[in-house]
Computed example of a mutant assay.
Amino acid sequence: MKTINILLVLLMTFSFVANAHGDKNKDKGLFKGIDTPAAKVVLAFHQALETGNKELARAQLADDVTIYEGGRVERSADEYAHHHMLADMKYLAAVKTKTLEHQVTILGNAAISASRSHTKGTYKGKDRDYQGMETIILEKQNEEWKIKHIHWSH
Results as ranks from 00 to 15, higher is better:
K96F: 07
Q103P: 00
S115F: 07
T119M: 14
G121W: 06
S115A: 15
A94S: 15
T97N: 01
R116T: 14
T99F: 02
N109V: 09
G121P: 09
S115V: 03
Y123M: 10
S113H: 12
G125N: 08
T97W: 00
K124W: 02
A94F: 04
K124H: 06
A111K: 00
T119D: 05
S117D: 03
I112V: 15
S115N: 07
R116Q: 11
T119Y: 05
Q103S: 04
A94Q: 06
A93Y: 07
A110W: 09
E101H: 03
S113M: 10
Y123K: 08
K120C: 10
A93S: 15
K98T: 13
T119W: 03
K124P: 06
G125T: 09
H118N: 14
L107R: 01
Q103K: 08
V104E: 00
V104R: 00
K120W: 10
E101G: 11
L100R: 04
K120D: 08
A93N: 15
L107D: 06
S115Y: 01
G108E: 07
E101N: 14
K124R: 13
A111E: 00
E101C: 11
L100K: 05
K98P: 00
A114P: 01
T119N: 10
K98E: 13
I106D: 05
E101V: 02
V95K: 02
T122K: 07
I106L: 11
T99D: 05
T97F: 00
E101Y: 03
L92A: 03
N109F: 02
S117W: 02
N109G: 10
G125L: 12
Q103W: 00
N109D: 15
H102K: 02
A93C: 11
H102L: 02
A110C: 12
S113G: 13
T119H: 05
R116V: 09
G125S: 08
S115G: 13
G108V: 06
V95E: 05
A114V: 13
T99E: 08
T105N: 12
S117C: 04
H118D: 05
L100N: 08
T105H: 10
K96E: 14
T99M: 07
L107P: 00
I106S: 05
L100F: 03
Q103D: 08
H118P: 01
G108F: 03
A94L: 09
A114I: 11
A94Y: 03
R116S: 09
K124I: 04
G125R: 07
E101R: 11
T122I: 12
A114M: 04
L107F: 12
T99V: 15
A93L: 13
K98Q: 13
T97L: 02
V104F: 01
L92Y: 01
S117N: 13
A111F: 00
A110E: 11
A111V: 04
S113V: 08
A94M: 09
E101A: 12
E101K: 10
A114R: 10
Y123W: 14
L92E: 04
T97C: 06
S113E: 11
K98I: 06
G125Q: 09
R116P: 02
Y123D: 13
A94P: 02
K96P: 06
I112P: 03
A110D: 10
A93V: 11
Q103Y: 01
A111H: 00
G125I: 08
I112A: 14
N109M: 03
K98M: 09
K120S: 15
T105I: 13
E101L: 12
I112L: 15
L92Q: 04
I106K: 07
A93W: 05
T122M: 04
A93G: 14
